[in-house]
C-alpha cells in the first residue's frame, strides 16, 4: 500500500488540527493558553517576512551549534575509541553536561559571551548536543569491523586514515540517530537562549512577557515547522550519505 504512506500522515495531521480547532472554539480557551490553529496561521501570514527572518536566525544558531558539536564529537570520539583511559575520564564530564538543566545556566553564559551576540546561543546548542554526538561517535567507531581494521593495519594505515576510511563511515548510522535526537533539543535550546538576537525565541519570550498569545503561538508553530523541515532534511541527507546501509535500503524496497 504505497499510497497510504503519504496519505496516512496527512489524514492524521488534518484530524489533529481539526480536533485542536474544535477544542479551542468549543471551550472558548484564552489565546494565551492555547490559540486556535486557524488564528495562528492567519497571524503568521500577516507578518510572513518577520517570522521567516527570525526562523532563519534560529536555524543558523541550531545549525552552527550542531556543526561545532559534531566536529568536536568526531575528534573526541576517535580519541575516546582509541584510549580507554580518555573515555573513562571524559564520560563523567559528558554525563554532567547531559543531566545539568541548560535553562539554568543560559543567563550566565549570555553574560559571559555577550548578551546580544550569537556566540552564547551557538555555544549552548553545541554544549547540549555534544554528549549524544560523542557517545554515538565512540559507539560507532568502536563497532568498526575488526577484519577491516586488520586489513588497514596490514598496509600500515595511519590513525588519520583509519579514522577517515573506516571509523567515521562506521559511526555514520549512530551519528545520524544522535542527530535526529539532538534536532529537537538544539531548536529548544536556541529558542530559549536567543533573546536579544532576533530569532524566533526572542519574539516568543517577548510575547510571553507581554501576554501576547497569538505572537507566542505563532513562534511555537514556526518552531514546529522548522523542526519538521530539519528532520526531513536530515533524513534526505542520511539517505544520500548512507544508501549502502541496510536501514536505508529497506526504505526503498
Amino acid at each position: 500500500m504505497k499510497g497510504t504512506r503519504f496519505i496516512a500522515p496527512v489524514v492524521g495531521l488534518v484530524i489533529f488540527f481539526a480536533a485542536w480547532e474544535a477544542f479551542v472554539r468549543a471551550f472558548d480557551i484564552r489565546p494565551f493558553v492555547l490559540e486556535a490553529p486557524s488564528r495562528i496561521v492567519h497571524y503568521l501570514l500577516r507578518f510572513p517576512n518577520d517570522y521567516f527572518r527570525a526562523a532563519l536566525i534560529t536555524m543558523k544558531h541550531a545549525v552552527l551549534g550542531f556543526a561545532v558539536a559534531i566536529c568536536i564529537a568526531i575528534f573526541l570520539g576517535a580519541a575516546m575509541a582509541a584510549s580507554t583511559f580518555l573515555e573513562q575520564a571524559t564520560q563523567p564530564i559528558l554525563t554532567l553536561i547531559a543531566v545539568t538543566p541548560f535553562a539554568a545556566y543560559i543567563g550566565s553564559v549570555k553574560i559571559g559571551l555577550g548578551a546580544f551576540s550569537d556566540k552564547p546561543v551557538v555555544f549552548i546548542v553545541a554544549l547540549v548536543s555534544l554528549p549524544a554526538f560523542a557517545f554515538a561517535a565512540v559507539d560507532g567507531m568502536r563497532g568498526a569491523d575488526p577484519s577491516s581494521r586488520e586489513l588497514l593495519a596490514s598496509v600500515d594505515a595511519s590513525a588519520w586514515e583509519v579514522l577517515w576510511h573506516l571509523r567515521l563511515p562506521s559511526a555514520l548510522p549512530s551519528l545520524f540517530t544522535a542527530a535526529k535526537y539532538n534536532t529537537g533539543l538544539a531548536l529548544i535550546v536556541a529558542y530559549l537562549a536567543e533573546k536579544g538576537t532576533g530569532g524566533l525565541g526572542e519574539i516568543g519570550t517577548r510575547a510571553f512577557a507581554n501576554n501576547q498569545g497569538d505572537r507566542l503561538w505563532a513562534t511555537i508553530f514556526a518552531m514546529a515547522i522548522l523542526g519538521t523541515i530539519s528532520l526531513v532534511l536530515l533524513n534526505l541527507l542520511q539517505r544520500a550519505a548512507m544508501g549502502w546501509h541496510a536501514s536505508q535500503r529497506s526504505q526503498h524496497s
Binding site: S147, E150, S154, H165
Partner: peptide
Amino acid sequence: AIVPQHPGLLPW
C-alpha cells in the same frame, strides 16, 4: 597483501 577469511569489503 592479505586476503582474510571474510572479504572485509567496506559497505560504503
